Simulated scan of single mutants.
Amino acid sequence: MAIDIRKVTVMGAGILGSQIAFQVAYSGFEVTAYDISDAALAGAHHRFAELVATYRDDVPGAAGGKAEQTAAGIVLSADLAVAVKDADLVIEAVPEVLSIKQDTYRRLNEVAPERTIFATNSSTLLPSDMKDFTGRQDKFLALHFSNEIWKRNIAEVMGTSDTDPDVFRAVVDFAGAIGMVPIELHKEKAGYVLNSMLVPFLHSAIALSAGGYADPETVDKTWRIGMGVPLGPFETLDIIGLNTPYNGLANGGEREQKLAAWLKDNYIDKGKLGAESGEGFYRYSGDSV
């Protein structure tokens, strides 16, 4: 079965959702970015403007107007039916809360064409926990990207026991076509390959500071020097944005929920959401985000 993916809708235009939409459009696909309100789309418009500057500086070949043309070509919509009416592929990047994702797929299935493939960008949740809400289990799988997609260019592809092999292969090919290195998983694993290693590492760092053993700066310095790497775990968390790890921790066990409460009380409730908000564990100037 030949599957042609040309028109892509990205649901959720937050930090990573905006990056996905921009990278897909930059690679020559027709892209619609959907979010729930005009206010959310205004935030996406601002992110696209920032990505234009980032691509011009960091991506070979993005100068000469290509980055600007990419941003101008992305359609923004707060109407779900309009956003997906012609989509070959919908990439879902809504908050990392299972009930929200399940409800999203229930609504999405009512308005999307029968041919449309659904892909979740969930960081830690299993696609099998969502598949029964999609109405098209054979056309549903996970497609997971890393933050700062233009340089951390992996795309993890993971199906369920119901995913059509032709659909899986088409999404792997699509990942390659947008400049990603496809990482194929042979069976479901919460966290895929990357987050199965990254999330426990980040949680360990949070536990050190939440437990009063060492402040975030010390934890980061230890990791950078000891491992010879450019970023520590709290610097990484600021890039990701604190809402994503908070949602993951809040849905965990007693230990994880205590760490989530520490993040919420000390950072999230104070508007310290990470680099994009100007402050997380560190402060950022406008031109460094």
Rank of each mutant, 00 (worst) to 15 (best):
K258S: 12
W223C: 03
F281S: 03
A170V: 07
D132H: 12
V10I: 10
F29G: 08
L125H: 12
D238S: 06
S277Y: 00
E96M: 05
I91F: 08
S161R: 12
K85P: 08
D215I: 07
N195C: 08
R106H: 13
R283L: 05
A33W: 04
Y267W: 07
L141K: 02
R224E: 10
L141M: 09
G253V: 03
V171Y: 09
V84H: 02
N266V: 12
S122T: 15
V82K: 13
V229F: 04
A21H: 09
P113R: 03
D57W: 00
Q137H: 09
F118Q: 03
S77M: 11
S77E: 02
E50H: 14
D79G: 07
A78S: 14
F168T: 02
P182K: 10
L141T: 08
L125I: 14
Q19K: 11
D166M: 00
G65H: 10
G65T: 10
V24K: 02
R224S: 02
L259K: 00
T124N: 09
F118H: 03
T9Q: 03
G12K: 01
N195L: 04
F48P: 04
G159N: 08
T116P: 05
V111Q: 03
W262I: 01
E30Q: 13
D35G: 11
G278Y: 03
R47A: 15
T134N: 02
Q23T: 14
F168H: 14
D265F: 01
G17F: 13
A205I: 10
T32H: 12
D265N: 14
Y34H: 14
T163Q: 01
H186D: 08
G65I: 11
V157L: 07
A177N: 13
F281K: 07
I178E: 01
Y282N: 03
T70H: 05
P182E: 13
S204G: 14
V59K: 06
H45E: 15
V59C: 02
D57T: 12
F281M: 08
K187G: 03
F234D: 01
N121S: 09
V172A: 10
S77T: 09
G226C: 07
